[in-house]
Amino acid sequence: MPVRIWRKPLDAEKIKVKKAEVHILKNQCKGCGFCIEFCPKQVLETSDELNIKGSHPPKIVDETKCALCGFCTAVCPDFAIFTIEKDCKEGC
């Protein structure tokens, strides 16, 4: 059996995992579903909500799961979603 030698990184306290803010510009969305389908962390899901154009924008299931990979921002044909790092100066 392999020896398990993992340990907690020494700088674990110092390293802060970035927190994400997911922004959906609902009325710009045409409802293609790419952001939902290709999110590696399943942050989004389909919703029943209708926007002014009559399509269903995505809804956030769990923002804390977002790893800020930015794929949703890049793959959105309608410039309707983007993620930014949360400003945690005052704690979050």
Binding site: K30, S55, A74, C76, P77, D78, F79
Partner: peptide
């Protein structure tokens, strides 16, 4: 905006 391209059209991704 919004552009005329259909829902899920690749043209929007190229613009992006």
């Amino acid at each position: 905006m919004p552009h005329i391209w259909c829902e899920g059209c690749g043209n929007g991704i190229i613009l992006n």
